[in-house]
Design a binder for these strands. Sequence first.
DNA 1: CATAGTAATGAATACGTAACCATTTTAATC
DNA 2: GATTAAAATGGTTACGTATTCATTACTATG
Lengths: 331, 331
Amino acid sequence: MVSSKDVAKHAGVSQTTVSRVLNTPELVTKKTLEKVLNAIEELNYIPNDIARSLVQKKTGVITLISGPLHNPFFVDTTTAIVNYANENGYKINVYFGTEDNLHTIYNSVLESKTDAIILSSILYDDPLYDKLEKLNIPFITFNRKHKKDNHYVEIDNEHAGRIVAETMYSLGHTDLCWIGGPQTMSTFYGRHKGFCAALHNLGIATDKLPFYFTDTSKAEIKAVFEMIVSLDKRPTAICAATDAIAIEVMSLCLEKGFRIPEDFNIIGIDNVELSRHHSINLTTVGMKSEKNLGSLAIAQLLETLKEENACIRQTESVKLFLRNTTSKKVD
Amino acid sequence: MVSSKDVAKHAGVSQTTVSRVLNTPELVTKKTLEKVLNAIEELNYIPNDIARSLVQKKTGVITLISGPLHNPFFVDTTTAIVNYANENGYKINVYFGTEDNLHTIYNSVLESKTDAIILSSILYDDPLYDKLEKLNIPFITFNRKHKKDNHYVEIDNEHAGRIVAETMYSLGHTDLCWIGGPQTMSTFYGRHKGFCAALHNLGIATDKLPFYFTDTSKAEIKAVFEMIVSLDKRPTAICAATDAIAIEVMSLCLEKGFRIPEDFNIIGIDNVELSRHHSINLTTVGMKSEKNLGSLAIAQLLETLKEENACIRQTESVKLFLRNTTSKKVD
DNA sequence: CATAGTAATGAATACGTAACCATTTTAATC
DNA sequence: GATTAAAATGGTTACGTATTCATTACTATG
């Protein structure tokens, strides 16, 4: 391994000067600059970023703890986050968190020197929040938020839930069902809350409607779908708390020979990229802005790294994207 | 920042002993072990992995240069690679390479201390190969391979191409078209070569068939599809070099009101996870093994990190996955 | 030409850890 | 209790860079 000392010796200057050539070349004479650059060239010198990180106490690495990519939402956000970070000179360490490995990931991340953390996996009442604040490590959550109501970028989940209910109602559907996720996550909690609130306002009793709270795994969604199919009074519309759930339900529907939307109306939330595919064409609720939630979060995070301004509370407004998995109810 | 020196002072031992407690506790008395562990606890000490990397010359980081996630193939491989690496104690730095930013990424990666590189973006005749060998940095390519025929895990691309042609032929389709990618990549080259070879064997002249070589962008695929639609003699079957292309073509078909497979048969290669979705249900060619190509590659890479055995040439055999985007031709 | 001021360079040090080698402590055997 | 071997601990250094401070080399001004 050739170091800056080797370069210095080869060029007949001090190691300090080599460092200057790389970092503050304007403080170096043209003549010595050339000498050093030539030496760097000849020796194929590559600066050691680990050593630099040690002395500067900055790694240039941001840790992303994402959900798994079989959820298309995280495909979109991971793409946006990684690319934005790279364009701004940061490297991204990626983890895909699941219920099983999340604790292991947290330990690994907390023991690693990372300039900041961007994650979505936080629970509404998660002890991780305090740990991060205590360690004074900059972080932001996207999609979900913590009860302490800071460091987050989300969509207006309650409004999204309301739009889902109102959309189905306006299409004539009153036999609805809801497939959600763990209520310990702000997204699922908020969407469900908005959904129920809207139904209440519309005069639809929610206590008789089938509500299911899954762990969002394929297995549980399948189990839930089979329960729905076997209901005495089958719902005409399935309201999924996320596009990921909705798209999985679509696959199950088609597998069983049901038609969409003739047999089941389906609606999701998130407006993931995949939902636009003409084989899917999922009616959904998503951000009004063209931007991606991951982009917004990583942009905010990089801002706070500059300014030490530790206050990010961003809730993006939402709207309906009407596509082909929904239709007017025919009696 | 609390260091191992602080812990040492607090526990009344040397920094060396603190280091031993963390790395070789069996060399330490129970009594001092406890003292040190208590000090660690009280001071909330977290070892600095950067300093450790510097002295050990190992970072525990592997760099993944993947293609973009809007290609579902890379969704599958990225998932497999990141998870496998994490399970084995490695962190993964992720980049999503495109034609535009690839050069920038290479520069960034080469200047960073990474234990190894796993990438798919290599060209058949890529100067990067020599650079990596020269720098003596362990690496592996998945999916694509370099002409120097080493450090790769791939599928049998030629065979895949043959299966595509034979499948369509056996269904009665002889008006075929091919939508491929840059022939500078071993995948596209091999698949196209196998496709042509099989057609030749079947007695179908390839010189009159419409072959298109795109850059795999949505824009070019769309342009190609429009050309296909406007052909005098419209092909009855579209053979895509990858599932990503096939799935994009499906969306374009449906958007224009064509039916699949009534108006167009469609087949891909890769057998990506998404192709199994019942809204897609794409006929495709993929690995016989249940494993993922990314898994195989990262597993091989980690092996070579242990053994310094620098020879990986793995070509996985393939088979047909017959689904619903293909059907017997009716005259 | 002297002098002050600035530009350019170098020497020494810190960053936080692991590793090497030396030293002290403990245990074991006679 | 003496001697020897083994176990446990500590002192020092290396890793490769940026930074701080000191020093030397220039330049400009009168």
